[in-house]
Design a protein around this nucleic acid. Structure first.
Length: 877
RNA sequence: GGGCGCUUAGCUCAGUUGGUUCAGAGCACCUGGUUUACACCCAGGGGGUCGGGGGUUCGAAUCCCUCAGCGCCCACCA
């Protein structure tokens, strides 16, 4: 039965994925072997596979598969994140398209819709990961809102509250008027924007003049409660303590002094709006100013917005500017470029806003987390450069705002028993809360119905930060077997964009709740960009369809394509051509296999060239395995792949197979065949983590395998130490072969015409290796001669000179030109070497070994020049 | 505004402690090819004064200074 010369991935991939699943190879249970654990960075439950996921999960799968081969009990825990704000936004949008407003629904009704959405679309991304070949332990699939995951989150909140680390605060927060929720500082993206800077005159109450302030947000004038100047600003000394009248609303506010104000900026006069600016809030507290909040949650103006009430802030800004102009108090406007905070999710402009929120104190949590990364090797970052970023953030932490004004997520377990803002208790359940509330309120007759749970939910990251612990139920049940066996996990693979959101917080959680690091190594992938270095995004439409890529190039091809150009931490400039290269590699291996399987076997003696080439490849393989292991140890996956790629393509296919390949139609001897098969199998093993489908297919097609002999659970090859001398000799062989090929090409001697080589000088290649050369270059013989041969082509390798007598006309002219070029170069080289050697300070200061080498170079160069001159002379006659 | 990092072949990147093998790899490019496993191939080849300038050193892609360009992170500049 003929095997196709094209490798067809789609059918094969499905077949082996099903086979692996059916045989439970991905599933892990604690046993005697050491554990190797990875928890997946849980993708959003409603997400679909994009290039970032492809890269990230390919890397994880490579690590997991290699660990499995190396005899670890490999466990890769998959799962999804409920992604409260992102998912809620999607559900709201979907409902809206069906004519339903969120505000028309009760919380319970809305959550029903959200769960339905989750059940319908959640997990799509996990199915897509299977297409990529990911060997996750699917029996362990988790969701951040699974019952026991929720319980872990609530327990954590309660414990931290009881410890005094969680508190409630009326604070300035980042308000997303579109999603109508707060955002953490990390969720705010600052973008440069051109805006108008408005200069507005405020009349002094005593009619003695006016002060001019500059603002980019004139609508906030309505919330002004003071004007502030620098006490050292001579221009305004006399005004401090006076009163001005706010334009439009006519409120009287004081002029105060604080050295916070920058004399140089704008007019040196700052309006203070404590409700809508972080610094103004601080100044407001310091100077005991009133707070006037002019905004509704949706970003429109409220009753303090006077006749602008109900207008959106952007609209109101223009209207107020017009009115100010009409009143003649709009002194001037300028355009400025400044940074504006926008929501990471909705891209709405963030409004600083005062509100009641829950916060987590970070200071104590940070200390051990900082120590683990920077001062011990408990946690290592790859690449290391991200440790700097980490330190910077960890030493400038602010308390974490963990409440969100959303419905989708873990509802905050605070229960109010009275109207007062402090009339609440925090408990794991409403039942428990009731008991606490009875005590707290002093009312023993309190009922469940009178308890009202805080409406907010927790920030998504407040569940994700527990992920490596909670997937093994380590919060609720820290003594359980699995948690003790799998935790701490080994490697975390993620993008640097969530270093703070997630990685740092997991480390803090790890030390806080388990006294251990949650993982040992963190591998940061780069961002996937397109060829023009643009981020891949939906709006640009530059993100390829992941499943189509797999379909076109095969999962193995795509995996190789992604890996080839993705050094850790470096952005990956994605290009289909890389996947094409991966597909080409698959095809190459496929055809090598086809060649081998096509051979007929007999019992003739093994040719000497086959024997030595096989020995050489075995050595070369061992050397490569050591190199590949080293690359993996340093998390240089692309380098590990490239080493494998060159080993298989160049050394195995182009050299070994070409040497052992019998003439067309001829059989191969059994010994060589068996060795080739063994070496092929070793190749499959080291390639398997990168190209799991292709390798399993060939592995199984090559020999009938029982269930416990599948490649996925084979053993990772060990290096036994390798014959370096043989590798060195073979390098000479390669060079001689290459030179002879060049000669053939230059002189247009077809391969079918045999040539012979005379060797002058020292020649230490074994007969076996000479046989290799003969086979590859159609050489009749290679004999050592006492005299140089005139009128022959020549080349030189090391201290040995090779001559090829040719029968036909030799292109003497071109040979002379070539020799002259070489002579010129060598003369220049000699000059520089002699320059060095005549420098007394070099001879005196450089290490002896270096000087010796230079002297040898000089001698070699002189020798070569002599030879070249003679050759030119001879040829020129 | 503060901090970190980058600049090496047309492209994407390696270059561990300054010194044989240090100027490399893959891709792309050019030339040739029934050497019947593979044209998703084979063979051969060209290509860089290591961003500019200065310094330290016997010796610098590698260390120092400076200039230019780029990127990232943090920060409340109205």
């Amino acid at each position: 039965m003929a095997i196709s010369s094209k490798y067809d991935s789609s059918e094969i991939e499905q077949k082996w994925y099903s086979y692996w699943m059916a045989n439970n190879y991905f599933h892990s249970e604690p046993d005697d072997r050491p554990a190797y654990t990875i928890v997946i960075p849980p993708p959003n439950v409603t997400g679909i596979l994009h290039m970032g996921h492809m890269l990230n999960n390919t890397i994880q799968d490579i690590l997991v598969r290699r660990a499995r081969l190396r005899g670890f009990n490999a466990c890769w825990v998959p799962g999804t994140d409920h992604a409260s704000i992102a998912t809620e936004a999607k559900v709201v949008a979907k409902l809206k398209s069906e004519g339903i407003e969120k505000s028309d629904l009760t919380r319970a009704e809305f959550l029903d819709h959200a769960w339905k959405w989750t059940n319908d679309y959640g997990g799509v991304i996990l199915e897509q990961l299977k297409k990529l070949g990911c060997s996750c332990d699917w029996d362990r699939t988790k969701f951040t809102m699974d019952q026991n995951m929720n319980a872990a989150v609530i327990k954590t909140f309660v414990d931290l509250y009881n410890e005094g680390l969680i508190y409630r605060g009326f604070r300035m927060v980042n308000w997303d008027p579109e999603a109508q929720t707060t955002l953490s500082d990390e969720e705010v993206i600052y973008e440069e924007k051109q805006d108008l800077l408005y200069y507005v005159d405020y009349e002094l109450e005593d009619c003695s003049g006016h002060v001019t302030i500059a603002t980019t947000r004139p609508e906030t004038i309505l919330g002004d409660t003071a004007i502030c100047v620098n006490p050292n600003d001579e221009r305004y000394q006399s005004l401090i303590g006076k009163t001005v009248i706010v334009p439009v609303c006519g409120r009287k506010i004081p002029i105060i002094a604080d050295d916070y104000v920058d004399i140089e900026f704008g007019t040196g006069c700052l309006k203070i709006t404590p409700a809508h600016d972080m610094n103004d809030k601080i100044l407001g507290e310091k100077h005991e100013l009133n707070i006037i909040d002019i905004l509704n949650p949706d970003g429109t103006l409220n009753q303090f917005g006077l006749h602008f009430e109900g207008q959106d802030r952007a609209e109101a800004r223009k209207a107020i500017a017009d009115e100010l102009a009409g009143l003649g108090v709009l002194n001037k406007t300028e355009t400025i470029i400044h940074k504006v905070g926008t929501s990471e999710r909705t891209h709405a402009v963030i409004e600083p806003r005062l509100s009641d929120q829950w916060f987590l104190k970070m200071e104590d949590l940070a200390a051990p987390a900082l120590e683990a990364v920077l001062n011990s090797d408990n946690i290592k970052f790859f690449p290391k450069k991200f440790e700097n970023t980490y330190r910077h953030w960890m030493t400038n932490l602010r308390d974490w705002n963990i409440s969100r004004q959303l419905w989708w997520g873990q509802q905050i377990p605070a229960y109010y028993y009275g109207e007062g803002i402090e009339d609440f208790v925090v408990a794991n359940s409403k039942i428990e809360a009731l008991e606490l509330a009875k005590k707290a309120s002093g009312n023993p007759n309190l009922t469940l119905a009178q308890l009202r749970q805080d409406a907010d939910v927790l920030d998504t990251w407040f569940s994700s930060w527990l992920w490596p612990i909670s997937v093994f139920d380590g919060i609720n049940n820290p003594d359980n077997e699995e948690f003790k066996y799998y935790y701490p996990t080994n490697d975390l693979v993620t993008g640097p964009d969530i270093l703070f959101f997630w990685v740092a917080r997991m480390i803090m959680a790890g030390y806080k709740f388990t006294d251990k690091q949650p993982f040992t190594n963190v591998y940061f992938t780069g961002l996937v960009r397109d060829k023009q270095r643009r981020k891949m995004s939906k709006s640009l439409g530059n993100s390829p369809d992941a499943l189509k890529l797999i379909n076109d190039y095969g999962a193995d091809g795509v995996r190789v394509g992604l890996l080839l150009s993705a050094a850790a931490g470096n952005d990956l400039l994605f290009d289909d051509a890389l996947c094409q290269q991966g597909k080409g590699f698959a095809n190459k291996i496929w055809n090598a296999f086809r060649l081998i399987k096509g051979w007929e076997i007999n019992d003739q003696a093994q040719p000497t060239e086959s024997a030595v080439a096989l020995k050489w490849y075995a050595a070369q393989f061992d050397r490569a395995v050591e190199e590949i292991n080293d690359h993996f140890d340093k998390y240089r996956l692309s380098d590990a792949l490239m080493t494998t790629y060159k080993l298989i393509w160049d050394d195995f296919c182009s050299w070994l197979l070409e040497v052992v390949k019998p003439a067309y139609g001829q059989p191969i001897d059994r010994e060589t065949y068996n060795d080739v098969i063994k070496l092929l199998e070793n190749n499959l093993k080291i390639l398997h983590p990168f190209m799991p489908f292709l390798t399993e297919e060939i592995w199984q097609q090559n020999a009938k395998r029982s269930k416990d002999q599948a490649l996925i659970i084979a053993d990772w090859p060990k290096s036994h130490g390798f014959d370096n001398a043989l590798i060195g000799d073979f390098e000479s062989v390669k060079e001689i072969v290459s030179q002879l090929r060049s000669l053939r090409k230059a002189q247009q001697i077809p391969f079918k015409d045999q040539i012979e080589v005379m060797v002058f000088g020292y020649h230490d290649l074994s007969e076996d290796l000479v046989a290799v050369i003969k086979k590859l270059t159609n050489l009749s013989h290679m004999k050592v001669v006492e005299e140089k041969v005139d009128g022959a082509l020549s080349f030189r390798i090391g201290s040995t000179e090779y001559f090829v007598p040719v029968s036909g006309p030799v292109d003497v002219e071109s040979e002379i030109v070539q020799l002259k070029d070489e002579l010129k170069y060598t003369l220049g080289f000699l000059k520089s070497v002699q320059g060095k050697l005549s420098n007394e300070r070099f001879v005196a200061n450089a290490p002896k070994a270096v000087v010796v080498v230079e002297k040898q170079k000089e001698a070699d160069a002189l020798d070569k020049i002599h030879m070249l001159q003679k050759r030119i002379e001879t040829l020129s006659k």
